[in-house]
Design a protein around this nucleic acid. Structure first.
Lengths: 256, 256
DNA sequence: GTGTTTTGTTCGGCAGTGCCGAACACATGT
DNA sequence: ACATGTGTTCGGCACTGCCGAACAAAACAC
């Protein structure tokens, strides 16, 4: 009998459990054989086999007798984001934008219906970053995400936004009609706001990155605490800076 | 008969080929099924199975009908380096060091006998970075690597340095006795130089990061072209700055 | 336009192998 | 000394990963 109940047809079980182990090490940190076996519901010997395999391939390392993620994943991750023209195009420009605004900035692309941060610039006043490179977010809860949704084609948008919209804070837009209205406004203005819709106390301003043929590549935003992101600064000046940076990045991304 | 000739005993073949495919996508970029099958020497149907599995797990994405690395690896890579106390400890300090010196800086740890860059700060004059996050280097060809070798225990050093030392440039130290002498000097001074030993035209100054119990955690360096890295500046002033930064990082790494 | 090649996909079927459980060392702590 | 945890090794069964062939569907030729 197959213990890998879900997964449908044609899914290789061994690969699935190997990556399951990898994800366990990511979420729980360094672990031992027994720990992994219990967590994944597999036998100790199987867990041992997989860990030894991953060890030999160099994707897992042994530290203090426990197994942990190896740095080979760093290289893979770097290659994954290097694929995106948006990454190269935004590097210098985002740093300038963050300097000018004084708040944290990030670059997002969409993958499998979620937003993924592929670049992040911390500001001078560097506050604790809850999100890091590789973090995924619900698109409808962020300025970057809403910028993306507003400018991607409708069919794609409908695929991404499932039946219900998770509510993360009291201000999260969890109604589809309301979201559509918001997206219309964003399309109109050319930039998006996030007013504590993902994290209470945090605001952000985002804008889409469009290539010259109007297809969307991703989006950028700057974000900071409500104490600093407010007034005319937040509502007018920052949006203009973000949009200007987005335009430059869009141009750089198409010619490269 | 087993087509996975190498690998020894207890190595799960399916996992090995899955990661082989991942590495192919990393090295060759987005590829199709046939391409992968030929490159790995497996049947088309097997390649198809693996790619579908990886696709469903989210580690591979489809773009223009071809398969490419997914951004899930970004997250894994980030978690892998977050494990190292050295990463957190060096973030702010390295930025300051790079500001002061005006050349690129990097943080390295050792894994499986090679040096891996886990953090890198580009300088103002930002020149093309041949190396990026996750890059691995031969330890004896870099300032960071030699700093590490000089301060790790002898047994470990002998394991790392195999029988021969690859020569990358005409100035690479490829003789073990010569290297040992160099390491003695580094231990004496507390810092290492790299004078075009990995890349012609590039120099670097490195220093080890030691925790308070004298165990080595990794090392740091700043590097730039020979045109700027020269004279008293290169031989005395920069080393002092690097060592000072290394001391601070070492202290921060132990108390965190 | 037709033919040709290369692509991705689906389909049985054999054998190889991944999986388990039990038995084994080894360390840790009571 | 015992008890409980750990990681490891060992057979053996049945499942499953692998192949090759047949298929579908583009891309390319001319």
């Amino acid at each position: 009998m197959n213990t890998n109940e879900s997964g449908g047809s044609g899914v290789i079980g061994a690969t699935k459990t190997s990556f399951g182990i990898v994800e366990h090490l990511r979420d729980e940190g360094a672990s031992g054989v027994s720990d992994v076996a219990i967590a994944l519901g597999i036998s100790k010997s199987t867990a041992h086999n997989h860990l030894q395999t991953l060890l030999r391939l160099g994707y897992v390392v042994q530290v203090d007798g426990e197994y942990a993620l190896g740095l080979k994943f760093l290289d893979l991750g770097d290659h994954a984001r290097t694929r995106h023209a948006l990454y190269h195009a935004s590097i210098g420009e985002m740093d300038d934008l963050v300097d000018a605004v004084g708040e944290r900035g990030q670059v997002m692309v969409e993958e499998n219906g979620r937003g993924v941060y592929i670049y992040q610039v911390k500001s001078e006043q560097g506050l604790q970053t809850d999100s890091h490179i590789g973090t995924t977010v619900d698109l409808h809860t962020t300025a970057v995400g809403k910028s993306y949704l507003a400018f991607c084609d409708e069919q794609h948008r409908n695929e991404i936004l499932g039946d219900d919209l998770p509510q993360l804070t009291s201000k999260t837009i969890d109604d589809r009609a309301e979201l559509d209205a918001e997206l219309d406004a964003i399309r109109e203005r050319g930039h998006a706001f996030n007013d504590e819709e993902r994290i209470t106390g945090m605001r952000a301003v985002g804008a889409p990155i469009l290539s010259d043929d109007e297809t969307i590549l991703g989006s950028i935003s700057v974000s900071g605490p409500t104490t600093r992101m407010k007034g005319e600064w937040y509502h007018s000046e920052v949006p203009e800076m973000v949009k200007q940076a987005a335009r430059v990045i869009g141009i750089r991304a198409t010619y490269s």
